[in-house]
Structure formats: structure tokens, C-alpha cells
């Protein structure tokens, strides 16, 4: 099995007549944090969904640890995890029940004490028995992050991780990303919070209208929307 977390070669995805992604050639190094930047509709979410195996590419190839996520689906999903805009939560289930469900699908070893501890680690300890339909967007995001902790993947795909979070939540994400990085987890993060994300990332990819407009060291990434030729 390849140790390269992600390789995209000539990747393209068309929705109807519009190409959401085209000519994406990308390789992500192990234990790195990569920022995907770009305006709305530039293809960031589509790229993450292709890598997660939720969307089939129209052209080209994507390999997650050397495997096609649409073919070796189970293997790729054991090694990668996506935190999307959506929380994947069931209205009617409490936070603890939601964790119990995820846990029982992932590993049978976690008891309620461990799960309550996990909830406490993201500031939801007091909300363990509250219905998630009453949660704010930030609380839902915090709960969703615990999914990744339970999955313990080698590649984490984060789609707008700072969205809907208060300053404390944003700091939580920063420390969590640092923790994952220290453990050798590879992270690909799509974000509009460029300055905050840049500080966390090693490399960056700037997408414009579905194509890679710039790629390099995160600290040197030009501001999206500026004249890249001039820079």
C-alpha cells in the first residue's frame, strides 16, 4: 500500500455542462497540513467529496493511500474521514446517543464513560443528554469533530472547519489540528478563514473556477482573488 495520502492525476468533475473541477494534479505528503483555498464555487468541496469517495470523478484518477476510494471504499474510509458542512446528526437523538451510534459502528470498545469524557473534551459535557436538534451550529460542529476522534483516521478532510464556531471553538480546532499533526495525521482543510488556516498549514492550493491557480508553501500563498500573475 502506498504511504502517500493523496494523489490526484488529471482529475476533473462535471456537473451537467459545467466543470466544477478540471486538470487537478496534486500530491499530498504524509503528516502534512494542506490548505485548499478559493472563492465559493471554486471546487474545494467537490474535491474533498471526490477524495472521500462520495462523488465519482468524470475524468482522471484519485488515489487515497494508493487506492481508488470508489473501488476500495471500505479501505479508504477506514483511513480517511470527512468533516463536512453537515453534521450528519439525527434530530431526536441526544449527543451521547449520537456518539453511541457512531461508536457502535466503528469500535465496540467505548463505554459511556469514555464517550462522556469525549463530550467533555469539546465542551459538550453538560449537553450529553440534550437533543442535538436543539444544538447551535457551533455545538453541532463540535459534536461532529468527535466522529473523527472515534474514527482515528490517517487522513482528515476538513470542509470549512472554522465556520459557525465561536472564538473558543476556533481555538479548539487549532489545537485539535496541531494534535492530529503531531500524531502524524495528514490533514486537508478547505477554508475561507485564510489567515487563521495559513498559520496551521504547511502547503496550500488555490483553486479558481475548478482549476489549480497556485500551489506552494502556505505562508507564501497569495490572497485569493488578487492578480496571481503580478505576484
Amino acid at each position: 500500500m502506498s504511504s502517500t495520502p493523496l494523489v490526484c492525476a488529471g482529475l476533473g468533475r462535471r456537473f451537467g455542462t459545467k466543470w466544477a473541477l478540471a486538470h487537478i494534479d496534486l500530491s499530498v505528503a504524509p503528516a502534512s497540513v494542506t490548505l485548499l483555498a478559493g472563492a465559493n464555487g471554486s471546487g474545494k468541496t467537490t474535491l474533498l467529496r471526490i477524495v472521500a469517495g462520495l462523488v465519482r470523478p468524470t475524468l482522471g484518477q484519485v488515489l487515497v493511500f494508493g487506492q481508488d476510494p470508489r473501488i476500495a471504499t471500505s479501505y479508504c474510509r477506514q483511513r480517511s474521514s470527512l468533516v463536512s458542512h453537515r453534521g450528519f446528526l439525527y434530530p431526536g437523538l441526544t449527543a451521547l446517543e449520537t456518539l453511541r451510534l457512531w461508536s457502535s459502528l466503528l469500535t465496540p470498545d467505548n463505554g459511556d464513560n469514555e464517550l462522556l469524557e469525549l463530550l467533555g473534551s469539546v465542551g459538550l459535557g453538560d449537553e450529553a443528554h440534550s437533543d442535538t436538534s436543539r444544538f447551535s451550529a457551533g455545538m453541532r460542529k463540535r459534536l461532529t469533530l468527535l466522529r473523527v476522534r472515534l474514527e482515528n483516521p490517517d487522513l482528515v478532510l476538513l470542509d470549512e472547519p472554522f465556520a459557525a464556531l465561536d472564538p473558543a471553538g476556533q481555538v479548539l480546532i487549532e489545537s485539535w489540528v496541531g494534535e492530529l499533526k503531531a500524531r502524524g495525521t495528514t490533514i486537508i482543510m478547505a477554508s475561507h478563514a485564510i489567515e487563521r488556516a495559513k498559520a496551521l498549514c504547511d502547503s496550500a492550493v488555490l483553486l479558481e473556477q475548478g482549476q489549480i491557480a497556485w500551489m506552494g508553501e502556505a505562508a507564501k500563498m497569495p490572497t485569493p482573488g488578487t492578480d496571481l500573475e503580478a505576484q
Binding site: S74, F88, Y90, P91, L105, L106
Partner: peptide, 21 residues
């Protein structure tokens, strides 16, 4: 219907679970 809300079905599929389950 409950799976539609918040893309919960997609969430289940993203886990390393067998769709058959």
C-alpha cells in the same frame, strides 16, 4: 426521512460501515 435530515445517510456511508448493514 430521518436520513435526509443533515445528510445523515451520507454520514453513515462515510464511516467504514458496510452499506448492507
Amino acid at each position: 426521512r430521518t436520513e435526509d435530515h443533515d445528510d445523515a445517510l451520507e454520514g453513515l456511508l462515510l464511516l467504514p460501515t458496510e452499506p448492507a448493514s
